[in-house]
Structures are given as C-alpha cells and as structure tokens.
C-alpha cells in the first residue's frame, strides 16, 4: 500500500514538471469566461473572489504558482477537497479557463506610486497597529480588532486598499461583523464576532480577549455591518501620504 502511494507521488511529481502555455487571444479569454461561468462560479464566484471555494482574484494562487499547476488543478481537481476535476473540459478548454482565471487577479501589478518606508512610519503614527496585526521579525505585532494584514499585498489590489482606508464601512471583509452585547447584569462587550449560532455568540474585543455568551443570558445583541470600527482616513492623510501608506500595505506579502 505504501509502495503504491509512493508511486503515485512520483507520478504526480513528474507531471508537475510539464510546462503549460496559456492561450491569450480575446476569443480564448471569452471562451474561458463562459466555461468559468458554467463550472466554477458556484464555488468561486463570477469574479473569482471566492465563497465556498478559494479566492482566485489575486495574482499569486497558493496552490497554483505556475500556469501548469493551475491547469492541472482544473483538470484533475484537488484530492481531499471539494474541488472537483473538470471532467467535461478538453485540454484546450482547461487552458482557456485557466487563462480566464489568471485574468481575474485583482492585485494591481503596476508599481504603486508611494514610498513604503514612509508608509510604515504613517502606519505607526496613525495607530493602525492598535487594531491590525502584521507579522514581523519576532512574531505577530498589533491589535486584534481588525483583519490581519500580514499578507494583504497578496490578497487585495492597491485600489481596493485605498478604498478601504478612505471608506472602511464600504469594504468590510465578508467575515467581519462588528458586535456589541449587553448582558442581563448590565455588562457591555464590544468587538468583532468570532462565532454565532442559534444559542450562543462569541466576541473578540480590541485587546484580543474572547468573550463567549449564551444568548439566553443577554439583554441585547447588536450587529451592524453598515458601520466599521475603523475611522476614515480621508481627511487625515495628504494624497502623497495615502500613496505611501498604500505602498506599505501592498508590500506586505507574508506567504499564505
């Protein structure tokens, strides 16, 4: 049994070396889009920004560093996950789909105007680390309220990050839910929701402490996705400073 498994691994390794060139004509991309809409949107969303399946709208895909990897994943699926093999596609259709997937990348590959070193200073000056974590030498540093930014440069485009800094409530991550509960004893706890079901809710506060409650013991539960605990930096940063801050965020590329 073990020998069989080893053989399978060797076979996969050999296959991994195969180079694949993705087609690039407008017709190929259009066909790839149709194939993608037909087979991939259920899990990955029509613009590739994920859902049940992985977020494909980024330049670097963790499991598909090369175009060959991407084509093989589409063709064979990912064993042990819900990613099925695309039995229905010819090799050419697989590469057309892969070409379209590559075109979904939201991460802006153009150079960002600002200066990342200045941006780091602004990140500190404006207290971003009070809520956001970034992995640095020696471990994770920063607060717990906002999303971890260690790999944000791999996940989001500069344009998206700019919007998030200027209008935080307009670009809340899907899993981010500001929450506030008041217990029957009068205690108030605010933070981000980390779990909720029919009977319980758990909240992580700004200091990183987890609070878990039975709903039956609460006076009120307030959830509001229309607001963000993060303030807008619209009037706090000059245009060049905003460029610098975005340049710093785009530079954060801790491997996923």
């Amino acid at each position: 049994m073990r020998i069989v498994l080893l053989w399978v691994c060797l076979a996969a390794f050999a296959q991994d070396k195969e180079d694949v060139t993705l087609p690039g004509t407008a017709e190929d991309l259009a066909r790839g889009k149709k194939l993608y809409l037909g087979s991939c949107t259920y899990c990955h969303g029509p613009t590739g920004d994920g859902g049940k399946g992985a977020d494909l709208a980024r330049r670097e895909l963790v499991r598909a560093k090369t175009d060959g990897d991407l084509a093989r994943i589409i063709e064979n699926g990912i064993p042990g996950t819900e990613m099925p093999a695309a039995w229905h596609m010819t090799r050419r259709e697989v590469t057309q789909t892969a070409a379209f997937v590559r075109s979904l990348a939201k991460v802006d590959v153009r150079a960002v105007a600002g200066n990342a070193v200045n941006g780091l200073a602004l990140y500190g000056k404006h207290g971003c680390a009070g809520c956001h974590t970034v992995k640095q030498t020696g471990g994770y540093r920063g607060g717990f309220m906002g999303p971890d930014l260690s790999s944000i440069g791999l996940k989001r485009s500069a344009a998206h990050l700019r919007e998030a800094v200027l209008s935080p409530a307009a670009s809340l991550p899907d899993d981010f839910m500001p929450a506030r509960v008041v217990t029957k004893g009068g205690q108030t706890v605010e933070g981000r929701r980390v779990h909720e079901d029919t009977f319980t809710i758990a909240i992580r506060d700004a200091a990183g402490n987890n609070h878990s409650f039975l709903k039956a013991g609460l006076q009120s539960v307030s959830l509001d996705r229309n607001s963000s605990p993060m303030p807008s930096y619209k009037d706090k940063l000059r245009d060049t400073e905003l460029d610098d801050l975005i340049a710093y965020l785009v530079s954060l590329k801790e491997p996923l």
Binding site: L37, G38, S39, Y42, G45, G51
Partner: peptide, 8 residues
C-alpha cells in the same frame, strides 16, 4: 458535469 451556470 452538465450544469450550465451556478450561484453565489
């Protein structure tokens, strides 16, 4: 697979 689309 013969599904012709999807949802999100």
């Amino acid at each position: 697979i013969f599904n012709g689309g999807g949802q999100r």
